[in-house]
Amino acid sequence: MELINIFTVFILAIFVGFEIITKVPPTLHTPLMSGSNAISGIAIVGAIIATQVGGEIGTWLGLIAVIFATINVVGGFMVTDRMLKMFKRK
């Protein structure tokens, strides 16, 4: 049962993604990419959990994962903000 629930969530999320992302205008496609980059840094949640499972090797893998994911989250959101700040009207 849990499996089917989680698949349902996955499929629905894809549809929501298609709906909202087709509405992003071409002029914002670069910030969309860097922003979605930051969102894929959600792997940080998994990385935090990973540091406590899988024994010693798991801890090391988890640590590197935390570093990678944090680079994504912090760098992604910051650079997106830096870009969006520049989009001005007349």
């Binding site: 999320a13 894809i14 929501v16 993604g17 298609f18 979605s36 969102i39």
Partner: peptide, 8 residues
């Protein structure tokens, strides 16, 4: 989140 980014 992964599905959103994948779709994007």
């Amino acid at each position: 989140s992964g599905a959103l980014v994948g779709a994007s």
